[in-house]
Nucleic acid binder design. Structure first.
Lengths: 150, 150
DNA sequence: CTAGGTGCAAAAGGTTTGCGGTTAA
DNA sequence: TTAACCGCAAACCTTTTGCACCTAG
């Protein structure tokens, strides 16, 4: 039985629409499918390499363009971890990220509790909050275990 | 009466030590003083320009090196807002940041409540959290007011 | 049909690095 | 005295852009 992550229906999300003046192109579809196929958080270059397998003519610039457009449409999310290359994720549910300094993996982490910016931060009166990002870095369980073993 | 932020004793922090094999040089002292003088969150280039007034021979690369070294020593903090140039801050108290998309200002925001990563995120068992960052972006009160007025 | 998208190559722009000379401790 | 640091310029690397051709709607 195929898992949720690899089932064709899930991967191809045939109903995806971008809205506005944005067209759904073969390149955007492939980029999106790559993001949905494995819920790791690939960089633009990694997305490029994966898409290239199925579509050898695609260019890195196009991948950047696709990712930016889809992020603008709210279909994809850009995740920035300090100065490292941006990563992208298709999980639009509200969540935080945990970055492992040892293996470089980025994983989604659920927010605990109420999730409104005001619950986390003393936002000054009169501000308009458009988005909030909660992230942590350190060692993931696997790398933490390895470190102890050494 | 000089404010806390501009009083010479505060600016010069004569007792600052870096520890380890790190030396306190005139360049590092100036970079640090600039960060403590105005609690805005200057980029490396902005720090460079400010230090240059008092020390015309300093180079941008040195400012980058000083900032990195001092961040490593825990004397200074690097603040990354998405893909924009890194900013630096001398406030080592735990706090979050609010970035205004209109005027580009970054201001410190107090965390509300308990402040431990586990209170915010469902950190997987066995992880070791080294640091947490909470940030928000949107419009600061001044820019929000202007937008309404238009 | 045509505005929007693609691919390519070149540029941009923040940050890092190699190196010969300098300096804090 | 000497390892650490500085200033300079060049390199690095991710991301953006200009442009001629292509394609979704």
């Amino acid at each position: 039985m195929p898992s949720k992550e690899t089932s064709p229906a899930f991967r191809e999300s045939p109903e995806l629409k971008l809205g506005g003046d944005f067209r759904m192109t073969r390149q955007r579809r492939e980029v999106y499918d790559v993001l949905m196929a494995h819920r790791d958080h690939p960089t633009a270059t990694e997305v490029f390499l994966r898409v290239k397998d199925r579509m050898p003519t695609i260019s890195l610039a196009t991948v950047y363009n696709c990712l930016e457009t889809m992020a603008q449409c709210g279909v994809v999310r850009q995740v920035n971890v300090d100065r490292e290359p941006s990563r992208y994720c298709g999980n639009m549910m509200e969540h935080g990220h945990f970055y492992c300094e040892s293996c470089g993996s980025v994983r989604d982490v659920d927010l605990r509790g109420p999730r409104k910016p005001d619950d986390y931060l003393m936002i000054p009166d009169g501000s308009i909050v458009e988005k909030m990002e909660v992230g942590a870095r350190g060692l993931c369980p696997a790398c933490a275990a390895k470190r102890v073993a050494k």
